[in-house]
Amino acid sequence: MKALALVATLVTGAILLYGTMDFPAFGDPNAPAAVHLSNNYIEQAVAETHVPNLVTAVLGDYRGYDTMFETVVIYCAGLAVVSVLRRSKS
């Protein structure tokens, strides 16, 4: 079992490493991730939302839908813990 797990791990790691070959270098300001979307956020977010903390602006507004579900996720977690752990009264 452990050997199998090790093999699975190594294979997964190898595939991931193979995938990193195409990655732009770390910290490259011209990487696709750094130029495509994020520039719009950095340049427009303050003007569009009046929130200087870009993370908050993106979190609360541009991707507010994600954040809403994030809140629901943690709400669910709380409920799930209660419902799993408590013994029912009857």
Binding site: A33, A34, L37, V55, V58, A77
Partner: peptide, 24 residues
């Protein structure tokens, strides 16, 4: 780039939620 930070905030919350349920 702020976008990955936003995504990862969500991911952290998800991870702690799953951890909580799993611990219960």
């Amino acid at each position: 780039n702020p976008l990955p930070h936003v995504l990862m905030l969500t991911a952290i919350v998800v991870s702690v939620s799953v951890t909580g349920v799993a611990l219960a």
